[in-house]
Amino acid sequence: MSYSTPSGENVHKAGAFDIRTFIAMLIGIYGVVLVVMGLFFTSDEELAKADDLNINLWAGLGMVVLAALFQAWAIWKPVVVPEHERAEHDARARRDDDPTTP
């Protein structure tokens, strides 16, 4: 999608494809699953493996926080591609198509 910045330059928002949202989603899902596992489904036997450190719970909480930070970053500073760079880039692609240039 395209819209204008206050300076009047046309920019192109990268939309759904922002790697930060992907990272936030994947790490977030992992975090939630691990927290649930840590709270309800980690047996005493498994806890004893690690001398009673509930790593599922703590790692899960850490991942949830990391995911939230990434999502916040992605919302705070969305990816924008200035229109003139796109034009330049498209022109370069056309130039590459031209067999007469080396």
């Binding site: 992907f22 994947l26 790490i27 992992y30 690690a50 450190l53 790593i55 703590w58 990391l66």
Partner: peptide
Amino acid sequence: IYNEVLQFFIIVAALLPLTLVGLHK
């Protein structure tokens, strides 16, 4: 490249807790 970035975080998410639980042990 995008997958490498994602992989970086997954590798850290795998190895950091392993290191911490190992140190605890």
